[in-house]
């Protein structure tokens, strides 16, 4: 059994990390918004919301790290430098890997940005 998925030939892998960012963002925002609007729905304190955000963040960062590792692999572990502009399948794959790696980096930072408020805010103040 493979631990990591096999490399697949598609454009969509480029968007993996940003999609994870978007999902994480929505989970945090919607979760907190529903909690603050309907605190009676679940008998939990705000710390639970913060713990939930922390858990979501760990999951999101792990997924992005996985996407980054796959991208690094697709990029040939950095054995070849950009610009990857030869008209070959190999350079096209390297380009995809490198661009995906960059996007994973940006998404990683953006997920951390999104999670930061939960470090500082302790209640649903308006």
């Amino acid at each position: 059994m493979r631990l990591v998925p096999k490399q697949i030939e598609t454009l969509w892998t480029l968007f993996t990390a940003p999609v994870v960012w978007a999902a994480h963002f929505l989970v945090c925002y919607i979760g907190a918004a529903i909690y603050c609007a309907k605190p009676e729905l679940v008998e939990l304190s705000f710390s639970a919301v913060r713990a939930g955000i922390a858990a979501a963040t760990v999951i999101a960062l792990s997924l992005i790290a996985l996407s980054a590792w796959l991208a690094w692999q697709q990029w040939g572990f950095g054995t070849d430098d950009p610009p990857h502009d030869d008209p070959t399948r190999r350079d096209r794959t390297l380009f995809q890997g490198f661009a995906t790696l960059l996007l994973s980096g940006l998404s990683f930072i953006a997920v951390i940005f999104t999670a930061l408020p939960a470090l500082f805010l302790t209640e649903c103040i308006r």
């Binding site: 963002f25 945090c28 925002y29 907190a32 918004a33 603050c36 919301v49 940006l106 930072i109 953006a110 940005f113 999104t114 930061l116 408020p117 939960a118 500082f120 805010l121 649903c124 103040i125 308006r126």
Partner: peptide
């Protein structure tokens, strides 16, 4: 008048887009 935590999420993303 949204909860401050909601504002903060969007504030964070607004700063991130500068990258």
């Amino acid at each position: 008048g949204l909860p401050q935590i909601s504002l903060a999420f969007f504030s964070a993303a607004s700063e991130a887009v500068a990258i």
